[in-house]
Each structure stands twice: as C-alpha cells, then as structure tokens.
Simulated assay, not measured.
Amino acid sequence: MNIKSSKTLVTEALSEIKTISPDEALSMMNEDKCNLIDIRDIRELERDGRVENSNHIPRGMLEFWLDPDSPYFKDGKLDMNKEIVLFCAGGMRSALAAKTLKDMGFEKVSHIDGGFGAIRNSKFKIV
C-alpha cells in the first residue's frame, strides 16, 4: 500500500492555497473584508481561548456547513462575498481545509500561517 503522508498532503496544499500572516488577517478583519474562521476542536477553544470576532466551525463540519446543498448548511452564518480566512492551532489543518474549500469552488480562501500560536503573539484579542 502506497499512501501519502499527512506531511505530503500539507505541503501540496500549501503550494496551492493563499497563506497570510496574522497581521494581514487582522487588517482584513478590521476592514470587514473577511470571515475569520477558527476550525479548532471545541476543547481547544475552551482550553486556549477564542479569537475575538471569529466564527467557530469545527474542521469536521466545515464542508457541510458551507455547502448550500447540505442539510447542515448554516445559511447566513458567513458573508459569502468576503474572503474566508481559516486558522487552526498551528496551520496544518487550516491548510488542508483551505485546499478543500478551493476544491469545492470557493475562490476567496486563505489560511493564517502559524495558526492560533502565531495569532496569540499578534495584536488579535483573545477572549
């Protein structure tokens, strides 16, 4: 059996998606140009805190909550005219998730380099 490693999948995703810094994401958020989405598990949010004004969509539900044909679609949760900016704890899950959203047809998608770890060291407010 010849399977791709998770590292290979992340490397491939990073070559295809837009990666932005926490500062770029904060500017976009302050200018109301993006949907900031935290895809970490709820236990991570409870343990480490949340980014103020971010939306929480667990990684396991992302595709279903954003697919208008899915019974789990969250209509009105996001402004689909704005860029979708994803982050996780360190940047690997969000890279894979951003690639998946691109594969679904979303055009304005990016992820934050370094994830929540980098965000915590930026000017974002953690609540």
Rank of each mutant, 00 (worst) to 15 (best):
D79V: 07
F64L: 10
R93P: 03
W65V: 13
N121K: 14
G117L: 06
E24F: 02
F124G: 02
V85T: 13
S70D: 14
S94Y: 02
R50E: 00
G114E: 06
G91K: 01
M29E: 12
A13G: 02
C34F: 00
L96F: 00
N53H: 12
T8I: 06
N81Y: 00
R50L: 02
G115S: 09
D75A: 11
R50P: 00
G49D: 00
S6L: 11
G115F: 01
I39Q: 04
N121D: 13
E63A: 10
K102R: 13
P71M: 05
D103L: 06
L14I: 03
L78P: 00
F87S: 08
T19E: 11
K18M: 07
L96K: 02
H56W: 15
F73N: 15
D38A: 12
E83C: 06
F106P: 01
K33W: 01
A13F: 00
T11W: 02
E31L: 08
G90Y: 01
K33L: 11
P22Q: 13
F106K: 09
S122H: 08
W65K: 13
P58I: 05
D103F: 05
G115I: 12
P22A: 15
C88Q: 09
F64N: 14
M80F: 09
K33D: 08
H111P: 00
K77A: 10
E16Q: 13
T100G: 15
E12H: 02
K108G: 03
G114D: 09
M92C: 03
D69S: 15
F124E: 07
F106Q: 10
A89W: 01
K4D: 10
W65Q: 14
V10D: 06
I20R: 09
S27F: 11
G60W: 03
A95G: 01
D23T: 08
M80R: 14
I126F: 06
R40N: 14
R93W: 00
R43V: 14
R120L: 05
D69K: 15
P71N: 10
F73H: 15
S122I: 08
F116Y: 12
I119S: 10
P22E: 15
I84C: 07
D67V: 10
R120H: 08
N55V: 15
I37M: 05
V127S: 13
N81G: 14
D103A: 14
L86T: 07
F64S: 11
F64T: 12
I37D: 01
L45T: 13
K123N: 11
E16A: 14
K102L: 09
K77Y: 02
T19F: 03
D41L: 05
M61N: 12
T11P: 03
S94L: 01
I112M: 04
R43H: 14
I39E: 10
H56Y: 11
E52T: 11
E63H: 12
I37R: 13
T8G: 03
F106D: 06
N121R: 13
K74H: 12
